[in-house]
Design a protein around this nucleic acid. Sequence first.
DNA 1: ACCGGTACCGATACCGGTTGCGATACCAGT
DNA 2: ACTGGTATCGCAACCGGTATCGGTACCGGT
Lengths: 348, 348
Amino acid sequence: MKRRKTLADVAAAAGVSKMTASRALRGDKDVSQANIERVKQAAREIGYYGNQFASSLSSKHTDLIGVVVPSLSNIVFPQVMSGVTDALKGTVLQPVFGVTDYDSETEYETLRNMLSWRPAGLIVTGLDQPPETRQLLKDAGVPVVQIMDIDGHPVDSCVGFSHSEAGHDIATALFETELRRFGYVGGNLDKDLRAAKRKQGFQSALRDHGLAFADIIDESDLVDDAAALSAVDCGRRLTADLLKRTPNLDCIYFSNDDLAFGGLCHCIAAGIDVPGDVALAGFNGLGIIEGFPGKVATSRTARRKIGEQAARVILETLEHSKTKMSKLHILKPEISLGELAAINHKRN
Amino acid sequence: MKRRKTLADVAAAAGVSKMTASRALRGDKDVSQANIERVKQAAREIGYYGNQFASSLSSKHTDLIGVVVPSLSNIVFPQVMSGVTDALKGTVLQPVFGVTDYDSETEYETLRNMLSWRPAGLIVTGLDQPPETRQLLKDAGVPVVQIMDIDGHPVDSCVGFSHSEAGHDIATALFETELRRFGYVGGNLDKDLRAAKRKQGFQSALRDHGLAFADIIDESDLVDDAAALSAVDCGRRLTADLLKRTPNLDCIYFSNDDLAFGGLCHCIAAGIDVPGDVALAGFNGLGIIEGFPGKVATSRTARRKIGEQAARVILETLEHSKTKMSKLHILKPEISLGELAAINHKRN
DNA sequence: ACCGGTACCGATACCGGTTGCGATACCAGT
DNA sequence: ACTGGTATCGCAACCGGTATCGGTACCGGT
């Protein structure tokens, strides 16, 4: 295989020095127009594309933004990534993604690895990193933005919303539509801490009115191997089980929209009127629940916007690192009650 | 901000030379057990985490695998990425993702950019790159795996299946269940070339039986701004419009499951029996259609497996680059007719 | 003719690791 | 005592760029 082209090759081809070639390609000043064109032409002809390693090593500087998310299977995170990508488009910065599988050990390793790339900034999901990981983030010496959550103590900046508040708020809204007997369907709460916070917020709102969940069910209650199931399917089966066990529920709160949607599917198939017989509430405001508009209540989270905003915080911090900028950006989810809103109206 | 720790710091702290420290940390040979521990201890104490730039520049070698996908909004690609990530877990290699937004200009730039990182391998989506991009891939000098499609001429290896065949196959299967009048609901065919191939394959199968689509509708037929709609919502509305325009269809073929699912939602809401009144067929086998098991026929694609296999091809090529290995890996989608299968049985 | 300023260019010294190879120490064999 | 082998170590060169800074050429002003 022939040797890779280097800047020296370009310089030779253009008849200038390495330095002039370097400057010309980077659009640096102190190069004549004639040479700029000569160099660019030469680079194109011999098929030269830089070497980031050499470049970054020499300039002690990169355009990388590390983005760490827990999962790719939940569409929410690709949407966040999309937001980051979009906000960074048009700038020199570019995102590099890492996935942790909701595992804090993997998260630590992923971050260490990213830091070995000396990124210009970091965006990480959640606030609940273990101490060692927090330390890593603190010592990173670059802007760090934690996203999707604000319940806790951010390392640096933070873009998201309060999950416990989100749970509390929708519980309150549902309570106000006269619903009283609530059930809960959850995913893997031990790993998804934010879902746990929502549940806890919901429960706290119920307590405010002297209520509690009438019944609670989650993945671990499925007899066969639930890991193989899609979230929708899982929600469908859990809902079926829950309603069999505790038939007279007014409303079921799901830990997210995928499960809630599964619940809706069950109800439709079983001839249960939603929200007439039983109301359903999920979380996120995903596209799938638009298939039956208004059926499922939900909190519409601004995932894409959170990604965009996080990227923007990094960008601005890098630009004028001196001026203190806001450390906390709240993008509160918007509650959508769907048809329940109308029912509420009728009742009032 | 204090200076970043370098290998020299570690070496000094451990009382050995840079070289010994380097070897100790990489697990290279020619280091005494005592020194290995001394160096690792020192590294941990001062919080050292290598510099990939220096390392890769010097060793002319990286552990990066570039993965280029067209989109993050379609859950299919995150699933492919997941497969790649999983297959690479436990190896030294690690994936780096790039998104093209179905834009070949962006794709070219993304690839150039990735190459400036001198990756050890590349996984790119699709076979239909423009000549300039193909050339880039050919000259990359690293294993290249094109995924998700095999209809065309791969640059190097290729993992996926034939979309035109997939379209042809499901059309044939549907025809055999006595369906005759077919409609088509499509997304943005101009950008999603693989969807276009499926449609073309479907049409070719219809032609084999002297048939053609009775009606075709796509996003551009929506009056308002369709870009703002989710795919599900879009499918719902297009199906409504199509059935109003051409009521007596036996079956509707959708360019993917998201749209098909939207179609199902419309039918359920409108009291149309599926598949009794009209059969629906999508593509991919996504989790969402499991909400109503058996209602929508589909071709279940092995996205995650394709990602895994692509990663494995890269791994193996890198390991024994001498031995020629298979260049074409077909993971054919499996057709699922759902309730149509039973109907077919009854008719026979 | 001389001077200061500006535009442009390139030699040199790194950046922080790794490769290559020679140096050193120590031990067993003869 | 001498030789050859093995285990360990470190010097120096280098990877492919970029920051720095000292030239050189050319200009207008006096």
